[in-house]
C-alpha cells in the first residue's frame, strides 16, 4: 500500500473537514482495502467513518425510511422497517457477498463505490430513493438515478460525503422485487434487476406506475426506460410482461467479459425483468 494517515473522526463535521481531495472515506472497506493494496488510489489519508455515532441508523422518517450510509448490509437485510415495505432492497442486501462481507459492507459504500453490478443500486432506483450528500457547507439530495456517472464515478463532488439514503414511503397497491443471476451462490451479479409496480386504484390489473432498474449491463446501473413506458397504463398480462422484458433487453448495453457474454446478459435481462415484474405485481396485489 502507499503510505497514508489513518483518521477516525468522532463527528460528521470532523470527518467532512478531513475529506480533502487526497483523502478517501473508509466505510466497510471491502472494496477500498483491495484498491489500496493494489495501489489503485492515490489517497494519503483514510477517513474511517465507523466511529461517527448514528451514521448507521435505519429509521422511519416522514414519508419513508432514512438509512444511514454506514448501515451494514446485514442490518439492512434484517431490518423489519425495510422488509415491511421494500422487498427489493431487503432481497438485494441479503445476497451481497458472504456473511463476512455483509457484516462489513455498508449501503453507502455499495453505492459510492459505483460498481455497475452493485446489488443495492437497482432496488433503490426502482423505489425512487435519493442520496443525502453532505459537505462542510450543508447537505443536498441526489436521486439515486443520477448518482452514477460511470464505473467507480459518482455525482459526488470533492469534499462531499454520502451520508444517508432516503427511501420514499411505499404507496398503496405497490410492490417491488429483486432478481439476479450468478454463476455460483457466492458471486457478483452477472445481471441484476429490480422492479417497482404501482397498480391503478380502479383497475387492479393495470399498472399505474412502473420502474425497472438493471445492473451489470451498462457502465452504470440503469433504468429500463422503454420497459417502463411499455408497462405504464398497461393491463398486466403475460404478453405485456413478455414485451416489457423485450424492451428491457433493448435498453441494456451489456458487454462481454470473463463472467458472461453480452448475449447471455441480454437474454438474462429479458428473463429477470419478466420475473421481477411478475413478483412485484404479486406483491402490489398483496399476494406475496
Amino acid at each position: 500500500m502507499r503510505p497514508f494517515h489513518y483518521r477516525a473522526p468522532r463527528s460528521l463535521d470532523e470527518a467532512l473537514a478531513l475529506l480533502t481531495p487526497r483523502a478517501v472515506p473508509l466505510a466497510g472497506g471491502t472494496d477500498l482495502f483491495l484498491k489500496m493494496e493494489r495501489r489503485q488510489t492515490q489517497a494519503d489519508t483514510v477517513v474511517d467513518l465507523k466511529r461517527i455515532p448514528e451514521l448507521d441508523r435505519i429509521e422511519a422518517v416522514d414519508g419513508g425510511v432514512r438509512i444511514g450510509a454506514l448501515a451494514l448490509m446485514d442490518s439492512l437485510g434484517a431490518s423489519s422497517l425495510i422488509a415491511g415495505q421494500y422487498e427489493a432492497l431487503t432481497r438485494s442486501a441479503r445476497v451481497v457477498g458472504s456473511i463476512q462481507t455483509r457484516n462489513r459492507a455498508t449501503l453507502g459504500g455499495n453505492l459510492a463505490n459505483a460498481s455497475p453490478a452493485a446489488d443495492t443500486a437497482p432496488p433503490l432506483m426502482a423505489l425512487g430513493a435519493s442520496a443525502e450528500v453532505a459537505d462542510a457547507g450543508g447537505t443536498r439530495q441526489v436521486p439515486v438515478d443520477r448518482l452514477f456517472l460511470g464505473p467507480g464515478r459518482t455525482a459526488l463532488r470533492d469534499g462531499e460525503l454520502l451520508t444517508a439514503i432516503l427511501v420514499p414511503a411505499l404507496p398503496a397497491r405497490a410492490g417491488s422485487s429483486f432478481h439476479r443471476c450468478v454463476r455460483t451462490a457466492m458471486d457478483i451479479a452477472l445481471v441484476n434487476c429490480a422492479a417497482f409496480i404501482r397498480l391503478d386504484e380502479d383497475h387492479p390489473d393495470t399498472v399505474a406506475e412502473a420502474r425497472i432498474a438493471l445492473g451489470a449491463v451498462a457502465p452504470t446501473p440503469l433504468r429500463a426506460a422503454s420497459a417502463e413506458t411499455r408497462l405504464a397504463g398497461a393491463r398486466l398480462d403475460e404478453d405485456v410482461v413478455e414485451a416489457a422484458g423485450e424492451c428491457a433487453a433493448s435498453d441494456a448495453r451489456p458487454i462481454d467479459d470473463v463472467r458472461a457474454s453480452a448475449d447471455y446478459r441480454r437474454e438474462m435481462v429479458r428473463v429477470l425483468t419478466r420475473r421481477a415484474i411478475r413478483s412485484a405485481f404479486r406483491r402490489a396485489r398483496g399476494e406475496a
Binding site: 489513518y6 477516525a8 473508509l26 482495502f33 465507523k50 456473511i99 463476512q100 457484516n103 462489513r104
Partner: peptide, 20 residues
C-alpha cells in the same frame, strides 16, 4: 474469518486500527 464485535469478518480486509 474471525469475530470482531460479535460479527464474523475477513481479517484480511480490515485494518487493525479499525478493531481498536
Amino acid at each position: 474469518s474471525v469475530i470482531v464485535g460479535g460479527r464474523l469478518v475477513d481479517a484480511c480486509l480490515i485494518f487493525a486500527a479499525e478493531a481498536d
